[in-house]
Simulated assay, not measured.
Amino acid sequence: MTNVSFENVLINFGFGTKDEKIKVLTANPEKHVYMDLTCYDPQEFYDEYPQLKGSFAALFADEARKMEIHFLHKEPGVIEKFRELGFSPVETTIVSCGFVFPRTIVQIINEAHFALEEGVASREDINRAMKFGVNYPKGPFEWSEGKELYVKTLLAELLNKTKDRRYVASKLI
């Protein structure tokens, strides 16, 4: 499921690079677009593409399929469409690179990889510590399984945007 269209609305779920996101936006100037911008700064896209009416972060949705969504303009039926697709959208007024949850979880994933690099504990021990120690539904390695590209992309975007070295990715990701 990359794109979902209804009436004059396009919901883009594709991961994609910035260039691929821009292609979707430029190919749909007449649509009201809502786009997964988990790994990017939505404001950069809002400033350039007036058809972008909202952005969301679904790449790290949990079992409950909760995802953050930000609206510049809430088209009737959009929230309902996300629910039909099995998501539980949580509205946010915060517009930032990585939203809140993905930005937090990639830092935890990155720190877990640094701990593994340093031989502090095994993957299993780190996962267990996070699940039983802080009651997370998954351990950091479980969160990142199959999503390493997204983790690296978001960390690189945050590093580029903030110049803060805490966003340098572990070699093990």
Rank of each mutant, 00 (worst) to 15 (best):
G146D: 01
E30K: 15
E111P: 05
M130R: 15
E157F: 07
R165L: 13
M67C: 12
Y34V: 01
R103I: 09
T38S: 01
F101M: 15
N3C: 10
A112D: 06
M130F: 15
C39R: 08
E124Q: 13
V95M: 00
D41H: 01
F82V: 03
E124T: 11
G119F: 13
E145K: 08
L172C: 07
A121N: 02
E111C: 04
N110Q: 07
S88Q: 10
E118V: 05
S170R: 09
N3Y: 12
K161E: 15
E148G: 08
L116W: 12
T93Q: 07
D41I: 02
Y46D: 01
D19L: 10
V33Q: 08
E7I: 00
E63T: 09
E157L: 08
E91A: 04
E111N: 14
L10A: 07
V100Y: 01
V120S: 15
R166E: 02
A112F: 13
E148K: 08
Q43K: 08
I105Y: 06
I126R: 04
H73Q: 11
M1C: 12
V100N: 05
V134Q: 02
A57F: 10
N160F: 12
G16F: 00
P42F: 05
Y167N: 03
K131Q: 10
Y150E: 15
I108G: 04
K147G: 08
P29E: 11
Y150V: 09
A169C: 05
Y34F: 11
V95G: 01
D19C: 06
A129W: 04
E7D: 12
E75G: 03
F45S: 00
K21G: 03
F56G: 09
P102K: 05
S144A: 15
G119Y: 14
T92Y: 00
W143P: 06
I108K: 12
A156D: 03
Y136N: 11
C39M: 10
V24H: 00
Q51G: 10
H70V: 13
V134M: 14
Y40V: 04
R165Y: 09
R83V: 03
L172M: 15
I108N: 08
E118A: 13
A115C: 11
G54E: 10
A156P: 04
V4I: 11
L59Q: 08
L154S: 03
F60H: 07
F141I: 02
K131I: 12
T26V: 13
C97A: 14
I105Q: 07
I94W: 04
L116F: 14
A169R: 12
Y46E: 01
D19V: 14
E75K: 12
R65W: 05
R83H: 02
Y167F: 15
K31T: 05
T104E: 07
M67Y: 11
K53G: 05
Q107T: 12
S122K: 06
L10P: 07
E148F: 01
A64S: 14
E124D: 06
L172E: 11
M1E: 14
P140C: 02
T17A: 00
L37K: 00
F60P: 01
M130P: 00
L52R: 01
P76V: 03
P50G: 07
G54Y: 06
F87S: 04
L159P: 01
A57E: 04
H73V: 13
R65N: 09
D41N: 15
P89L: 02
V33A: 08
S5V: 11
N127K: 08
K74V: 03
L172Y: 09
